[in-house]
């Protein structure tokens, strides 16, 4: 994609492009600060890996939402519906694949998971397309109605899940090879968490690649900053937006599947549960910023795990406190995305 770049070096100085590094330090500082508090290294490793895994899953879910907001100023409160529908679709897909899931072969297990994730991604992608057309499109530019209507859409979707799959809690068994933990010395790390971290890193890397190295990615970044100018250059931002919305929905489906596997159980309320964390994460990250969303997800998830271990009673409000602290430091979130 690199345009013809004239090889020039010039003595002419430019005001130094200052990279904003402080937000990158939040998660590492948190990790280091937690070590003496937790006290034992193996426990700390377990908590940290759990936090990283949780953070990656939240990031996968939240990234699409924050981009959709950045691009079109649309805040989709119904994003949680894709989380839940994705998880249920994956569960349904895993039923006929039970043989593969229980097989004692990592490859068969992963193949079953891949199929389940594909079903979740495709299903929620299609649902996202319909949701954008029916629910979101008529209320562009009206925040109040957007919030109300997309929230209504979430309720309807949640209830529809009840009607289709029943309201009882479902089991979401982990494939054989992913159960249990890997042990290094006296440190035990659950296998599935490692998988979740790997998937999250892959999604993040893939997104960075698309956003920085492809024309579509450039258009998305440009559109987040100034959608009107993107149109004036001759690109149809509507199509771009629908594409991002569908991709974001599919990612939410993927994230929902991972989340359900992590919990090993599933109810229709899963969407609402996760959405609270997702909102906190994208507020912390700065609405519209993928990088901020990634950092925010790590910070929230790590803190949730450390605090859950150190002081379970206040674990529930720790997220709110972190959000408050970060907003005091940076009222717009970690990364401010320039707006028109």
């Amino acid at each position: 994609m690199a345009a013809t770049s004239p090889a020039t070096t010039s003595a002419d100085s430019l005001p130094e492009a200052r990279r904003d590094l402080a937000p990158l330090l939040v998660a590492p500082v948190l990790m280091v600060a937690a070590l003496p508090l937790v006290g034992s290294l193996p426990t700390w490793v377990t908590l940290t890996v759990a936090g990283l895994a949780m953070g990656m899953m939240i990031f996968v879910i939240a990234s699409g939402l924050t981009l959709v907001f950045g691009l079109m100023d649309v805040l989709n409160f119904g994003h949680g519906a894709f989380i839940a529908v994705g998880a249920y679709l994956a569960m349904t897909m895993l039923v006929p694949l039970a043989g593969w899931v229980q097989a004692d072969s990592l490859w068969l297990n992963l193949a079953a998971l891949a199929l389940a994730v594909a079903a979740a991604g495709i299903g929620t992608g299609v649902l996202g397309f319909a949701f954008e057309r029916v629910i979101v499109m008529p209320v562009y530019g009206e925040h109040l109605k957007q919030i109300l209507v997309t929230m209504g859409g979430l309720i309807v979707a949640e209830q529809a899940i009840h009607a289709v799959w029943g309201g009882d809690q479902k089991a979401m068994p982990l494939p054989q090879a992913l159960r249990g933990a890997v042990v290094f010395g006296d440190v035990a790390v659950e296998k599935f968490r490692l998988l979740a971290v790997a998937v999250g890193l892959l999604v993040f890397a893939g997104m960075q690649l698309v956003l920085n190295r492809t024309k579509i990615g450039l258009l998305i970044r440009a559109g987040v900053e100034n959608g009107e100018m993107v149109e004036a250059l001759g690109y149809r931002i509507r199509r771009l937006f629908v594409g991002v919305f569908v991709a974001g929905s599919a990612l939410a489906g993927l994230g929902g599947t991972l989340w359900a596997l992590y919990r090993e159980t599933l109810t229709a309320a899963i969407g609402g549960e996760v959405m609270v964390l997702v909102f906190i994460v994208i507020i912390i990250g700065g609405l519209g910023s993928v990088g901020g969303c990634f950092l925010g997800a790590l910070v929230v998830a790590l803190a949730a795990n450390y605090v859950g271990y150190l002081a379970p009673k206040i674990a529930l409000v720790s997220n709110i406190l972190i959000m408050a602290a970060i907003l005091m430091w940076r009222p717009q979130g970690l990364y401010l995305v320039a707006r028109r």
């Binding site: 609402g272 609270v276 906190i280 009673k313 709110i320 959000m323 717009q332």
Partner: peptide, 26 residues
């Protein structure tokens, strides 16, 4: 509300759900 009215909807949702869990847990 200092930053952006749209934050308000998200933050109230987060705070209210934390409060509900807190009330159930304590």
């Amino acid at each position: 509300l200092r930053v952006r009215a749209i934050f308000f909807a998200m933050i109230t949702l987060a705070v209210a759900s934390a409060f509900a869990v807190l009330a159930a847990q304590l």
